[in-house]
Amino acid sequence: METVEKISSFVLPCVVLFIGLILLFGKGDCFSHFLDGARDGMRSAVKLLPSMCALVVGVSMFTASGAADFLAKYLSPVLDFIGVPSDIFPLVITRPLSGAASIATFEDIIAKTGADSFQSLCASVIMASSDTVFYVLCVYFSSSGVKKTRYALPVALFISAFAVIFSCVLCRIFF
């Protein structure tokens, strides 16, 4: 299994090496192409700050007020019914909202149930196979000025809910 990690650690450096070779042997002024592209990238990244600010403030208010804990507690009968162990509910709530908060909850689950418990394994698979939906959508759309995202959020949330349930099913099969 570690060979897979070794190979995958080659991917990024190989792409960079390839670009380095283009810069060395390519036709024309390749480095100015790099600078042009990089300048545009920097500009769109800075444009993200206003919407990022609203999102992060909203999410940190949500977790600080205790609303996240409340939701996790009262959703438990529903999730229990579909085979998601009750210890990982806090993760189900924080995973779509914030990367840092979900890592913290993930570590709590490991501390509480042990690293090789069924709950921790489910949590690991959920952590790795779903993403911070709100953050991703905010980042993707805000710098281009798209205001109405229509069915993007419902589909993304549906997919991450599916990922939670399916991760637990897979963990039952694999471990």
């Binding site: 600078l35 592209g37 990238g41 769109s44 990244a45 800075v46 993200l48 980042v139």
Partner: peptide
């Protein structure tokens, strides 16, 4: 915190947009 998050993204954005343009 939102500033820290955005700034960490600025570096990655700059690098990959540059690479993208070269390719």
């Amino acid at each position: 915190k939102s500033v820290t998050l955005t700034i960490s993204l600025v570096g990655i954005m700059t690098l990959w947009s540059g690479f993208m343009n070269v390719l």
